[in-house]
């Protein structure tokens, strides 16, 4: 029987500034060597009409993300969410996070493996 996925990470990428805190918080928590880790920040520069552009940063949970089970078991938030500088990451039950998504645009909900 397939494992039931209950929890996810909601990212409000309107406010992600590309500070890389999530990436390093994860590396510190699990002592990953440089280049590995549970979350990576991507920079997306979208060219717009009239020589304009739009800059987006998007944290992406990798194959190494365990949604910080060792922390959440103790009632703590995941390391990335705890330290996120712009407070644009939320950890919680998928249904609740999905409801949050109806309130504003530029959100993405990740359900890591």
């Amino acid at each position: 029987m397939a494992k039931k996925h209950e929890y996810g990470l909601l990212i409000d990428y309107e406010y992600c500034t590309g500070c890389y805190t999530c990436q390093i918080a994860c590396a510190q928590e699990y002592q990953w060597p440089a280049g590995m880790g549970g979350i990576r920040v991507n920079e997306i520069v979208q060219q717009l009409p009239n020589d304009k552009a739009y800059l987006t940063y998007l944290p992406f949970p990798t194959e190494l993300c365990v949604l910080c089970k060792p922390r959440t078991k103790k009632g703590l938030k995941p390391a990335c969410v705890t330290h996120c500088m712009s407070g644009c990451m939320t950890y919680g039950p998928i249904e609740e996070l999905a409801k949050e998504m109806t309130k504003k645009p530029r959100m993405v909900l990740w359900v890591p493996k």
Binding site: C19, Y20, T21, Q23, I24, A25, A27, Q28, T82, H83, C84, M85, G87
Partner: peptide
């Protein structure tokens, strides 16, 4: 430090390193 009024527990990549 979540109780600190300056950063409310938030921390940057450099401090976390």
């Amino acid at each position: 430090d979540p109780s600190h009024p300056w950063n409310h527990g938030r921390l940057c990549a450099r401090a976390l390193s």
